[in-house]
Structure formats: C-alpha cells, structure tokens
Nucleic acid binder design. Structure first.
Lengths: 405, 405
DNA sequence: GTCCCCCGTGAATCACTCA
DNA sequence: CTGAGTGATTCACGGGGGA
C-alpha cells in the first residue's frame, strides 16, 4: 500500500477541529495563514495537516515546552522477507521512509531539528525516537546544532519481532534521545515523581514496554493496522510524565496516528501535532476526541524534594493494571488512598502537603509507623475482593516475562 | 619498543609475554611516515605500544577477522586529539570550540575506522562500544565509510552508578554497534550456539551484565583502579563467542587494560592489541600471561544445520535409505508422491509433465506454495510411523561422519 | 463461563551454491 | 555476473473459536 508520494506538494496548513478546553486558542487562519509569518500566540490542542518543517516555521518561536518526534527511520530494506511458515512480513516500505542517500536524510534531519529548536522554549527539551538505521545520524545532528544531550534511553521491547533467518541478534529495542535546547538549560525533570513511581529507586535509561498491539492499535475500515509504526501509549506517557508538567505544550511534528496528542490530552498537557497525511490526521482527531483527561488532582506533582515522602509503582499505572484515580485501602479498610498518574498515591483525609507520595511512605504515614512495605500494605478491590497490590505487580511481571531479570 | 617485525613468525597464545619495548622495531618515520610498509604476514598474540592509527597502518590489509574497539570518547583527549591539519584542539568552553571539538573528534573517528577497515578481512566485522557522548558520531561515521550496521546492542548495566544530582535518568547502559566491513558480507554469526545458550530462544540486542568490579578489576600498586573504563570480561566474551570462531584474529586498537586480549586468549582466539600507554600495556601483558586457554573441546561449536555437509536426496536413494517406488506423504497424509530411481519424486494424481521433480519443487507444487523444504515436508512410513525424510538424511550424515573420521 | 489451541502479526537494512 | 535451485528459519502476545 502506497502512502504519501515523495515530493508531493505541501498542503496548506489546515486546522483540524480539536478543541480541548482552549476556547481562546487563536486559529492558524486568524494569523493570516501566510507562509513564514508566525503567529504571536501559540495555538493549542491542534492537529495541523501539512509539512513538518513548513508548519513549524509558522509557529511562534520559544513557545513549546517539549518536542516529541518520531521521524522516518530511513530503513533500507532489500527484497521481501518471509517467516519460516512462508507468510510475508508486512514491512515499512512507504514512500515517506525512502531517502536518496544519507546526505539527503541528514539534510532533512537538520532542517526539522532546526525548526524544532526555534520553536522550543529556552528551557524546553526534545525527545527523538529511532533505530540504528537513523538514530546515529540524528544524534550527531543534534550535537552539531547545539542541542545538549541529557540521556539516551532504550525502549526494550517485551515482544519484538524475531530475526527469522537467524542471521543477527533479535532487534529488540529502539533508542530515544533526550536533549535540551542548550547546554546549561534549566529543563523540567520530575525526578522525585519518577523515583517514587519506581519503587524508590531512580528511573533508569532502559525502559521495558510491549509493542502497541491488540485493542490499542488503530485499525482501518478493512481491519488492517492504520499506521505502520504506531507507538505504545505507555512509552509516550513516561516521556511526558518525565519531562513536562500539566499545562505544558507538547509538539509532535510527525504525529502519525496521534499517540502523542492522545496521551498529552489524557495527562492534561496541551499539544500541537503536525501530520502530512490527511487520513492519519483524521484518525488522530477522532482518537483524541475520545480521550477523557484525567482528574486534575491525580496529576499535580507531588511535594517536591528534600523531606518529601517518596514511593513506588508507576509501571502498574502506565500499563493500566491500576487506573489513576483508583482507591487503595489497607487490608482492614481503615485507611484509604487514591492512585495518581505518576505512580504516587494520595492519602484520603490527611493534611494536604504531606499526604502524597510513594505507596511505602503513605502506608507508613497512615499507620504512624516508621516504615511500611506498600506492596503488601495497600490493597485494591477487584470483583468484590481485596488483593494486595503486590498481586498486580506479580501479574505485570509474569506478563512481561523477561522483565524482572 | 618492539613491534611486529616484518615476516615475524606466528606466535602461539602461550608466548604472549611479548616484550613490548624492544628497540628493533622500525619507527613510523622509518617506514616513510604515511606509507607504512605493512608486513606480509600478520603478527599474532601481540601487544603493541603505539598510536592506534599508525600501528594499524603497519599491519597487512585484509588480515583480521574481528575488530573490537572501545575508543576514547571524551573530547579532552590531550595530545591525542588533533584537527585534520594537525593543530591541537583547545579547551571546550564555547559553542565554536565545541563545534571544533566535534569536528576534530569526527576526524579522529574516521581515521581509525578507515585504518581498521583496511585491516579487516572482507567478511570481517567490527564492534565499537560507546555512550551517548560519542556513539552517535561513531555510528554516523561507520555508515559514511561504507560499513554495514548489523545490530546496535545495548549493554544494560546491572549495577550502574546512580545519578547523584537527580537531574537525569540513571545512565544505565552503553551501546555497542556491530557492523560488517561491507553490505552483503558473509560474516560469522554463531546463531545456533547463542540460541542454545539462551534457553533456546534467539539472543536479543539487549544484554545484561554487571560492571567490572571486585577481583576482576585491575588495581595499581596503590590499590586504585588501574584503568578508568575497564570492561567486564563477560561482555567481551559474548562478543567473541557471537562473531568469531576459535583461531580467528581479533584486533583491539584501544587495548587499555587488555580485556579483549585476555578473553581472546581464554577462548582460543588470536589477538593483536594496540595501546598507547606503556603502563596499561605492561599491565595487559601480565594479565594475558596469566590466562590459561580453555580446553579446546569446550569451545567446539555445536553442530549447525547450516554448515552440515550437503546431502542430496538422490544419495539417500543410491545408498538404499529409500527404495525407488516408496511412497512419500506429508505429515497429515493429504498429499502423496512416489520416489523415483534418480532421486526425483512423482506427485500422485497430477498432470504428468509438471508432476515430477525435486522433493522441494513437488512439495511446493502440492501445496500451491512458492517454496517448500522437502526434507521436512515429506514423510516416509516406517514400522507404522511417519518420519520426515530429514531423519533419513541425518542417518546418512552420521554414517558419513563416522567414515570421515 | 472457562480453558486451550490455533492463527495472525510486529519500524527488518534477515542465503548460499553452482552452472 | 546472473539466475535458478536447494533448503534453512520465529517469539511473545492477543483474539477467536471449539471443546
């Protein structure tokens, strides 16, 4: 199936009517819609159909808190590949992923990175995802353009496609680069929340998530995957929870099926998505419309810092084993707490500034004890019965199989 | 200091105590500078003290099976890092200098990669390890120089150093790039052995190993770590077990504390190590001397179907393992064929002129498939039970094997 | 309703020999 | 160098249908 033809004329920017509590967001048309003239105010919660670079040029400079980009990977595939059972692998052979040469890919990369850098606030950061086909070129371009790399991050795939011919290692990961606009920038990093959501240990640079499959994967009318490279929401959620705050503006210049925008809306971040193909933009729009933002109180950052209680289990939340807003109680139902999106919990009926934190600290606080294992202290009610949240953790671990290691 | 003299006889792995400081080695200048005369035969099991690039230039071309490189990645390389015009790079303290530093690092990278590529056999491969500081530049240079990336591999550190300031994700991995000298090369990859050693599932691109600590970590006389970036032997062992065979030649142009050479000797690979610093080379020498190679029989590769001697179906007929006229069926008995005296088979109930051919063609024809492995598709009945004809081939091979010994 | 088996599928740079 | 023939090769997960 062919998608956009290379060299297809750029579409004029068109606002796609997604309104998310931003009645005052000026439309792009109101800004003249003229090439090169950037609006003075940033539009918000908008899917723009058009060329990434041209549309970024039309946005005001220094206006975006985070850029998340999933650019074409420039895969260079030979003939077709079959599984051992003779079935054909549905490869990414779309025109938009074809480049004449490394030089052409580099030029494209530098152009969109420059446009993104202009739009970023001075303290804004950028994530790019890629594979070994393109990520080295992207990383070198980032450095050349003055971005300051903060981390490279590995998305370990729980269920990658095998190497069918047995000629290489199973290609079981992709790489994200996290970079600040400039060296020395005071970027956002929700260290405490991430640590608290990670069993009180620092979040590492290797993240484990399954591929986007099943119900989450968007399908077209014929039941085929709508987009060849749809990313899992859990991955994007961790990115946004790591490096943005509620209300921040997230720009995705290669929106595709709209994952970044959908997750941003759910987490009460604003978004701007640019997508070249009308069909993808339309699907993204419908997807975003169906998203209900999480309650604000589960998204407020926990009391930062020093004496602030810290705690656990964001993976369960990210993966949907526990829903933000769900209620936890102890075994006898004497204490209650509410799960928050970043993996911290909020005690019910307690003084506000000390009542949010990790499952361990809040368990201790509830009992007036010095320490507490939140995994066994806190319970969730399922089908009328109380289970310790440790059971959910066990489920997640068994689902991931290789996860614990 | 002594280097490999031209035509020097091969050394055995036990003669590693090579004097690295002998005076008879010709200097680079003696070779006419740029045009270093390379020896006609490759020295083996040798630690060379000198500059990586200059010493690689002195080795014969197309002589090395694997290059493992752990290049310096900080931009303050002291006297080592020079601009292409040989001028020295100043301190990195502003944007311009930073760009200059990247350019200088790129020039250094291209130079050593080119030298390594020249020394590699056409089917040889190269591993480079690095972090986000340098790996993107190395990867892009690899691609620009014509190397063909086979995998990027993530070394997940079981016990990484925490991020003390809490401003980033814990930097918990390093990246290796595995690349062939050229696209289309027939490189060595011990697929079956790796899979067998990994609970019978393919080895993935994410490897988990602890840092090099404890007894394995070399210490100086004062008890401090001898080398700042000593790699764990387990990591290098997996590299060598993946992409080399016993007896292959492994070159490490940045030998450091000698891990690559020590592991190569233990695994009965030959090695050439180049190290600039006399102190590191001396420590590496002592370390290598203490290594006892593993017994050969624990290093023999498990039988690989891919490398098994080819046996034609006609040989089975000629040798009486199948009788002309015998009936073959598929596993479910839906298709039937008759064995002919010349090793072809005839499909039952099919048009005559297209119904005779090889076990593979007829298997494909019977199923209406494009291709078919006749060895596993067709079965014979023996004592009431169906066996794939592959079983008969295995019997013949084992007879041949005994005869060959 | 539950369990189990079968089938589909995922950003993939995925043979080798001999005539 | 090209083309044809041989023949080697897959893991985790989700969904649907049958027992």
């Amino acid at each position: 199936m062919r998608r956009a033809a290379k060299g297809e004329p750029l579409r004029s920017a068109r606002q796609v009517g997604v309104r998310v509590d931003s009645a005052d967001a000026p439309s792009l048309a109101a800004h003249g819609g003229v090439l090169g003239r950037a609006p003075e105010r940033l539009p918000r919660d908008l899917v723009i159909v058009g060329d990434s670079i041209a549309e970024m040029v039309r946005l005001p400079e220094k206006s975006v808190d985070l850029v998340f980009a999933d650019p074409p990977y420039n895969l260079q595939l030979g003939g077709e590949l079959k599984r051992p059972d003779e079935s054909r692998v549905d490869a990414v052979d779309d025109a938009w992923d074809q480049f004449e040469s490394f030089a052409a890919y580099d030029a494209f990369t530098r152009a969109w990175l420059l446009a993104a850098r202009r739009v970023l606030k001075p303290n804004g950061t950028l994530f790019v995802i890629g594979s070994y086909h393109n990520i080295f070129r992207v990383g070198a371009a980032l450095q050349d353009l003055g971005f300051w790399i903060l981390n490279d991050i590995v998305w370990r795939k729980a269920n990658p496609m095998p190497n069918f011919r047995g000629r290489r290692f199973t290609n079981a990961h992709e790489t994200l680069i996290w970079a600040a606009r400039d060296a020395g920038a005071k970027y956002t990093f929700n260290y405490e929340a991430l640590k608290a959501g990670n069993d009180d240990v620092q979040m590492r640079s290797d993240w484990l998530f399954p591929l986007c499959t099943g119900q989450e994967r968007l399908k077209d009318d014929a039941g085929r995957k709508l987009h060849p490279t749809q990313k899992p929401e859990a991955l994007i959620a961790r990115v946004l929870l790591s490096a943005t705050r509620p209300g921040d503006v997230v720009l995705d210049p290669f929106l595709g099926s709209g994952t970044t925008a959908a997750v941003a809306k759910r987490l009460r971040r604003s978004f701007i998505g640019i997508e070249r193909e009308e069909a993808y933009a339309a699907a993204a729009r419908a997807r975003i419309d169906a998203v209900e933002p999480l309650a604000e109180d589960v998204l407020i950052a926990p009391p930062s810092a020093r004496e602030a209680p810290r705690v656990a289990f964001s993976a369960l939340v990210e993966r949907g084993f526990v829903t933000p807003g769900a209620e936890l109680t102890d075994a006898k139902g004497r204490f209650r707490a509410v799960v928050r999106a970043d993996g911290t919990i909020a005690l019910a009926h307690a003084a506000a500034d000390r009542s949010v934190g990790s499952i361990h600290r809040m368990g201790a606080l509830a009992q007036g004890a010095e320490a507490c294992n939140g995994w066994t202290f806190w319970h969730v009610r399922e089908e009328g019965r109380l289970h310790p949240i440790d059971v959910l953790r066990a489920r997640l671990r068994s689902e991931m199989g290789i996860a614990a290691e």
